[in-house]
C-alpha cells in the first residue's frame, strides 16, 4: 500500500466517521410524548424542542387558525399542543405530526411550527396512513424493522 492510498483511506474513514457521529449526535430529531416524564420536563423548562407523535382521535379543536390537540404515541404519554396558523392539508386526527416549540408554565406545548409526518404508503384507495397503525410512533428508539 503506497502513501497515497494510506492517506486516502485515513481521510475517507475519518470524514465518514465525522459525518456519521455528527449526525448521531443530533440524532434525536424529536421526542415522543412518552419520553417527556416529569423529570425530563423539569429539566427542559421552557427550552425549545421537537415532539413527534399522533394527533389523538377526538382531540382536535379548531377555531379559525387557533388549533389545539393532544399528541400521543403507543405509550402512556400525551401532550396538549397549541398552535396558531394554517396547518398543511394532510394535518388531521389519527395522523402523524411533529411540532416545534416549548412548554408554557401551564404545561401546554406552545408550537410555532407544525409539520405533518406521513407514512411511506402510496395507494389510490382511501388508505389509512400506515404511520398510525404500526408502532413507528412508539417509545424509545425506533425499531430497526421499521
Amino acid at each position: 500500500m503506497n502513501r497515497q492510498a494510506k492517506t486516502l483511506l485515513v481521510a475517507a474513514v475519518a470524514i465518514g466517521w465525522l459525518v456519521f457521529s455528527g449526525i448521531k449526535e443530533a440524532s434525536v430529531y424529536f421526542k415522543y410524548p412518552s419520553e417527556l416524564t416529569p423529570t425530563v420536563l423539569a429539566e427542559l423548562g421552557h427550552e425549545e424542542l421537537r415532539i413527534g407523535g399522533m394527533v389523538a382521535g377526538g382531540s382536535l379543536e379548531r377555531e379559525g387558525s387557533d388549533i389545539r390537540f393532544v399528541m400521543v404515541d403507543d405509550g402512556e404519554g400525551q401532550v396538549l399542543v397549541h398552535y396558531v396558523g394554517i396547518p398543511p392539508d394532510m394535518f388531521a386526527e389519527g395522523r402523524g405530526a411533529v411540532v416545534e416549540g416549548s412548554f408554557t408554565m401551564e404545561g401546554v406545548f406552545e408550537a410555532h411550527t407544525l409539520m405533518v409526518k406521513h407514512g411511506e404508503d402510496y395507494s389510490a384507495e382511501e388508505h389509512p396512513d400506515r404511520e398510525n397503525i404500526r408502532s413507528d410512533f412508539g417509545t424509545g428508539i425506533p425499531d430497526p424493522g421499521g
Binding site: 449526525i23 448521531k24 440524532s27 434525536v28 430529531y29 424529536f30 413527534g52 411533529v98 409539520m115 409526518k117 406521513h118 407514512g119 411511506e120 404508503d121 402510496y122 395507494s123 400506515r130 404511520e131 413507528d136 425506533p142 421499521g146
Partner: peptide
C-alpha cells in the same frame, strides 16, 4: 434515526408499499 421523512417505499426488504 427518527426523521420527518418517511421510510423507504420501494428499496426495502418487504414488498413495495405502492
Amino acid at each position: 434515526w427518527r426523521t420527518l421523512h418517511q421510510d423507504a417505499s420501494v428499496l426495502k426488504p418487504d414488498r413495495p408499499s405502492m
